[in-house]
């Protein structure tokens, strides 16, 4: 059985607990063992914390990576932001002995060392490559037969130079994962347009972030999709929290929640009470 250290991050456990819960249930059903990554912190957030101090960002990320290394496990995340941060930090530290030595000087203050061995995976990648679409299809008991918009976000596939998962200009992975539940992904304009929240723009200039989201919502509406399916709690929060102001009401689901529905979880367990845009199945 595949075994991973489950990196929770911030937004899923502290704003959309249903995303965390459905991940746990779905992983069990699919034979992925999640081990708690006790004592982990914020990844730290790549757009804000890394923008304030790259040195702090790298050292705090290294602490998270070292916690997983001590367990001898790769990390799995359910958030593009955490994935962006931890993957980038691991990529840098695992390949650059000089940077690693610098970070270890900081970690020495807490009697910790990072050897540079932790691998970081996004949940969608694990589902697609390790579990496989056929096994997911076989686990579906309650098909999710709706027209949906697949929302990749930015930091799952990009920067493609180091991630090397799929061509971000011609990606199909998420559509395949979603359609395994019986849903249909509706083609739309600008499918890779950023939700607007990243890089500290949501906190810094919420109106600018909203302008990004508005274009996305218009394109999604025009495609006749009835749900937005994301793989990032931060995109999720952006879509969920600004729609009311913008006059839209398209329910937002994380892929783990869609799988939860398709695999028979109850509405209560899926944590829809935390959503601003009502989710009625």
């Amino acid at each position: 059985m595949a075994k991973y250290a489950f990196f929770l991050g911030c937004i899923a456990p502290l704003r959309y607990p249903g995303v965390e819960k459905s991940t746990r249930v779905v992983c069990e059903k699919l034979g992925i063992e999640l081990v708690e990554l006790d004592d982990a912190s914020c990844c730290p957030a790549p757009g804000v914390i890394r923008a304030f101090s790259r040195t702090t960002w790298l050292a705090a990320a290294a602490r998270n990576l070292a916690l997983a290394e001590a367990k001898g496990l790769p990390i799995v995340t359910i958030c593009n932001g955490c994935y962006g941060s931890l993957f980038d930090a691991a990529h840098e530290l695992n390949n650059d002995a000089e940077e690693l030595a610098k970070v270890n000087k900081v970690l020495a203050e807490i009697n910790m060392e990072y050897k540079g061995t932790t691998q970081v995976y996004h949940f969608a990648e694990v589902l697609y490559k390790e579990v496989g679409v056929e096994k997911i299809k076989a686990a579906v008991t309650n098909p999710f037969e709706h027209n949906v918009a697949a929302f990749y976000g930015c930091h799952f596939l990009k920067p493609s130079k180091i991630k090397d998962l799929e061509d971000p200009e011609d990606a199909h992975m998420l559509e395949a994962l979603i359609e395994a539940t019986g849903a249909k992904c509706m083609p739309r304009k600008q499918p890779m347009l950023c939700c607007g929240a990243g890089g500290g723009v949501r906190a810094g200039f919420s109106d600018v972030a909203k302008e990004f989201t508005k274009t996305n919502l218009e394109n999604i509406q025009a495609s006749s999709a009835n749900y937005i399916v994301d793989i990032c709690p931060f995109c999720h929060m952006q879509f969920d929290s600004v729609q009311k102001d913008l006059g839209f009401s398209i329910p937002v689901l994380h892929l783990c929640q869609v799988y939860g529905i398709a695999m028979g979880m109850s509405e209560e367990e899926l944590g829809f009470s935390a959503h601003v845009v009502p989710v009625k199945l």
């Binding site: 757009g47 930015c154 990009k158 920067p159 971000p168 950023c194 990243g198 723009v201 810094g204 990004f212």
Partner: peptide, 11 residues
């Protein structure tokens, strides 16, 4: 501070 770090340009 208006860059969302979407990486479109980098790609």
């Amino acid at each position: 501070w208006e860059c969302t770090t979407c990486y479109t340009c980098v790609e």
